[in-house]
Amino acid sequence: MNAGQQTTRRIASKAGRSICRSCRDSSKTYATAAAAVQTEDATAQHIPPVATPSQALSYAVNAGVVLSRPPVLTRDLHPFEAAFFLYQRRLNERLALPFTRYFYFKKKTPADLEWKRKIKQRLTPARDIGRYKGYGEEAWNDELLVGAPESELQHQVERLLEDAEQSGEEGKEGENGEEDTSAAMAGGKTVKHDPVERPMPRVTEADIKGDVKSLNRALPRTLYLLVKNRDGQWMFPQDKMQGRENLHMAAERILTKAGGVNMNTWVVGNQPIGHYIHDYPEQVRSSSPNPNELGFKTFFMKARIMAGQADLKNNGLGLSDFQWLAKEEVQKAVEKPYWHAIRNMLAER
């Protein structure tokens, strides 16, 4: 067999085994479809029956408001703190430069004579640290004995008022038992001063009467609004979320429905400061129209009252009473599970 015959036979053998692309693809498609039909039939024969799922158990979502009135006054000082601050003021009298009298008062003027009279009584330019002289042999003695009234706030206030109201009458006896002759030095004339308005007391009339509905009580403390619901329980104002409102919007709505429109309030932030979970007893769930509701979860928003007062008339939440209470008073008013959930949200003072 020559070379030409071998080439012809090789070409013929290759042509006999070749298949066009369209035929090859169509054959694969038909085979795949047939296999899929067989698989679906086999699967359909072994599908187990599916049971109808029951409704899932859930909690109702409530929004609550921790409405507070911030402290109006600074807190009362501990006796040790009061004594320490007085010691610091006396120490300042020792370390500061002496008071230059003639720089402020012209010699032999009424102001200079009054200065001499007052410095003779208290021995120091400061008016609220008692009798103490920062320069001299007794300058080191700047500490008080236990129980001395000079460190008490009320005693210091009285000394300031007394210094402002002293009349400078001739022959008046000073604190050191010596006769005050400043009026005689002023030519025998009486130096009179206008009465000074006294500061308001830290204890108000509402504190004395125990009026827990007044905001003018416990001025150094933070007060929180508690309301009594339909079941007679004391708690923060709360209500179920409605529609598509968020917690901030719900808090504003609850404040308006619970306390009326006469309160100027401010809801702080958009995130809750705590939550409380209440589970319904089994008897309550069985008699409820929605037995799949396990209870409710209340998310509390922080709010401040700027002015006004709560008014429960015609409130839309069925509230019957309200109180403004400090933290330890809240603990006595609410139930124990509720207190354990909210205690870390309340300020200590």
Rank of each mutant, 00 (worst) to 15 (best):
K28W: 10
R253H: 11
A35R: 15
K213E: 05
G260D: 01
L153G: 09
G187E: 05
Q5N: 13
M263L: 12
S22T: 15
N176P: 03
V146F: 08
T265H: 09
D163Q: 14
S167P: 01
V227D: 01
Y59A: 03
I273D: 00
L255A: 02
A82P: 09
R198C: 00
R217K: 01
P291V: 09
Q154C: 01
W266C: 05
R10V: 03
S68A: 07
F300M: 05
A3R: 11
Q156S: 05
G318K: 11
S58W: 07
H340V: 05
R101M: 06
Y30V: 14
I119H: 02
N92Y: 09
T100R: 08
H78K: 04
F99M: 04
A63R: 15
E328Y: 07
F296T: 13
A3K: 15
Q6S: 08
Y104W: 11
H78L: 05
L223W: 00
A307D: 04
R89P: 04
A63M: 14
G134D: 03
S26A: 07
S26N: 10
K257M: 05
P71S: 02
W266L: 09
D194V: 08
D321S: 08
K107E: 10
P281N: 00
L144M: 08
R221G: 00
S26W: 08
R230H: 12
P272T: 12
P337N: 10
L215Y: 01
D41R: 13
Q271V: 13
F236S: 04
L226W: 14
K189A: 05
R217L: 00
M185T: 12
M241H: 12
K327T: 05
I11A: 01
V191I: 12
P220M: 02
G232R: 13
T8Y: 11
D163F: 12
